[in-house]
């Protein structure tokens, strides 16, 4: 395992007016990430993803727990961890008045890399991320996608074993986003382990080899996207109806329904085989005179996993 954490904790004191209260941002995170995989942290904003990432990247000191990253102990030897990892922050990291090339060379040199080597690495990274054309323009002239690619290039300029990406595609247009997925996969091909956070379901599903779902500072589920969806068991029949609560009662004792969940406008029935369940569902609703506005059958998505684990939809939170 290239990353192993145990009981990682962090709380912040926040002040609202005169009252100060403690917010437990991360409460005991245990996880292990295998070498060479793209590992994703999925969860709503405020779930503690960024805080965990910043702890692993040595930017925040944990209150408790331990972690070993690429063989270096986070608590005992953060300096060695820094040498072995790369970190790409959410909000960008380039200075308007510098050029992409200058930023890359300087950043490489901050890792102790010699001047000539730093220049060679910068040129290579600029090629890899299709930035050569803009290399000597100031960063303020870059588009959002170009700037993001410089950020990623900065994060890997010293060939780290592990690279942490905090919300790599937030704020990008759909095209740049698709492009960025390609870049992230490229990092894996280069032999790096990628640890990213995201609140996009499709991104977690398409990009990550393995996922941890985080909510309220804790990991609520962990596994490959396929495994996680398997855990939810079977298909989901969702029914849009006005009287959701009344409709839900009808299925409490139905044998073919494993679990019933309700949201504001819809009823979700977890069933083994959706196709054979639908006629039963319709008949039951019809018999009780519940009028429906729509019925849908779908394979469970990561949102269903999230819903099953937390009782909320990720889209709503």
């Amino acid at each position: 395992m290239i990353i192993e954490t145990s009981g990682l904790r962090k709380s912040f004191r926040s002040r609202a007016g005169r009252e100060s209260k403690t917010v437990e941002a991360v409460r005991g995170v245990d996880l292990s990430v295998a070498e060479g995989e793209i590992f994703g942290f999925l969860g709503p904003n405020g779930a503690g993803k960024t805080t965990t990432l910043r702890m692993l990247a040595t930017l925040l000191e944990p209150d408790g727990g331990s972690a070993v990253i690429a063989g270096a102990d986070l608590r005992k030897d953060p300096g060695e961890v820094r040498r072995r990892i790369g970190y790409v922050a959410q909000g960008g990291s380039t200075w308007d008045e510098s050029t992409g090339r200058e930023e890359l060379v300087l950043h490489a040199r901050m890792y102790g890399i010699g001047k000539a080597d730093a220049q060679r690495r910068a040129a290579e990274a600029l090629d890899t991320f299709e930035l050569a054309e803009y290399a000597d323009r100031r960063c303020k002239t870059y588009s959002g996608g170009q700037r993001r690619r410089v950020d990623i290039a900065l994060g890997i300029i010293h060939s780290p074993k592990v690279v942490f990406l905090d919300e790599p595609t937030t704020g990008l247009d759909p095209q740049s986003r698709a492009h960025m997925w390609g870049e992230v996969r490229k990092l894996r091909e280069m032999g790096m382990t990628v640890f990213l956070t995201t609140h996009y379901l499709d991104e977690a599903d398409a990009l990550c080899d393995r996922l941890a779902i985080m909510d309220h500072g804790q990991i609520v589920a962990e596994g490959t996207p396929a495994d996680l969806k398997q855990e939810v068991l079977g298909d989901v029949v969702s029914v849009n109806a006005r009287e959701v609560a009344k409709a839900a009662d009808l299925f409490d004792n139905a044998e073919y329904v494993r679990k019933v969940e309700t949201t504001e406008q819809s009823l979700r029935l977890y069933v083994e085989d959706g196709a054979s369940a639908i006629p039963h569902v319709l008949r039951t609703l019809d018999a009780e005179g519940v009028s429906i506005e729509g019925i849908e059958l779908h394979r469970p998505s990561l949102d269903d996993v999230f819903l099953a684990k937390t009782g909320r939809s990720l889209r709503e939170s």
Binding site: L59, G79, I85, G86, Y87, G92, S93, W95, M110, Y111
Partner: peptide, 10 residues
Amino acid sequence: GVIERNRVTP
């Protein structure tokens, strides 16, 4: 984000 980027290096 420049300071944070510096702080993540040794």
